[in-house]
Structure formats: C-alpha cells, structure tokens
Amino acid sequence: MLARENLVKYVILIYHNPASQRIWESFTAEQRTEGLREYAALNQALAESGEMIVSQSLADQALGRRVAVRDGQVLTTDAPLAETKEQLAGFYLVDCADLDRAVQIAAMVPEARAGLPGTGLVEVRPIMTYDLLGG
C-alpha cells in the first residue's frame, strides 16, 4: 500500500516491415544462419537466467484472419498478402528485474539493429496485473 513493490513482467514485441523484410531477403545463407544463431543464444540465455516465460514467432499475416461479429454472425476477412505495412512477427514474454533489464534483453534481439531511434522494430511493454495498488 505504501512502499509497494511488485514483480513486473514485460513483453518484447518484434515487428517486421517491408524494409526489414528486404534486408533479410538480401542476406546470404551464412548471414541468415548467424541471425538464427543469435536467437538461439538469446533463448538459451533467458532460459538459463530464469527470465524466460514464453517466446513465439508468428506466422505471416497472410495466414491470419481478421475477425468481427455483426448481429451474432462471425465475419472473417483474409489479411492482405501485400507487405505494405509493419506487422507483428514475434514476441518474448519475460519476467525480469525492471524496465532497464527488459530493454537490455530487447537490444539483444537481432531486429533491434534494423530499426531507427523512435521507429525501432522492437518494443518493450510492461504487462498489466490484477494487483491492487490502492486501498
């Protein structure tokens, strides 16, 4: 209630955009292997430190559906195949000491090097809880 302190979890969101997609496609086989190796190393480091909760890559948006309900009817729309915008490509859910540490982890995601300040492809967000901070 006063000096409250809680353990906070963070999600690290990884986006792809047409530019980053082109960079990836221009990579040699070795460069791609190196990128995947970096991911494997990051996954292992987070598992060993006890900070990893879950991490997943998302299939392409073209395989997804937009869902809406109108008058009780479920309406789905195929997402467009055109790579015109940013799309969510994967995420990490971590339980780490604080926001600084979450940013440190996010900086180890290979995509972090493809972004520009302010429009980076990797985003850190705290997870909301059911903790009662007042009363």
Binding site: N6, V8, P126, I127, M128, T129, Y130, D131, L132, L133, G134
Partner: peptide, 10 residues
Amino acid sequence: LTLSIPERRY
C-alpha cells in the same frame, strides 16, 4: 498509465 487492471477500471 497504471499497471493494475482493477486500478485502471477504478
């Protein structure tokens, strides 16, 4: 700006 769901509702 809160991290608590019940607090956000309040």
